[in-house]
Amino acid sequence: MHEVSLAGGVIRLVEDALAREPRVRVKRVVLAVGALAGVEVRALRFALDALAPGSVLAGAAIEIDEVAGRAWCLNCAANVAIHSRLDDCPQCGGRWLQPNGGTELSVRELIVEDLPDAPDASAHQEPASCASSAAVISVH
């Protein structure tokens, strides 16, 4: 379950980013997880859901973009799509592939909104979290 460590890394990264942006709330965080990154997306989502309450990601929608794997085939001298490190080249069946895409695990962006000014804060202490239909992000 190294995904728990990775989820902790995501939260730390967001905390660092928000240190430069005081008085905002995270509505959505967008991650990119490559097919060859060695990360199980379901486990990462589970870990983030478990760690989010009480953190900077509390109430934030978590969006995970799954990036397809790509590799350079030494036989065809072309970039091809692969799903795992065990795949053969889909064009020529060759096995000499060098993965060159879909190995990333990164935080792409944060969608944040400003927190209301202090006197208005009580009016916003409602249980639900989305500010408008634009903020309703489907969580799979």
Binding site: V107, L110, E113, A135
Partner: peptide, 12 residues
């Protein structure tokens, strides 16, 4: 008031 902060930062 909603805006995006682009990070593109590796988790590790």
């Amino acid at each position: 008031a909603e805006r995006a902060i682009h990070l593109e930062t590796r988790v590790l």
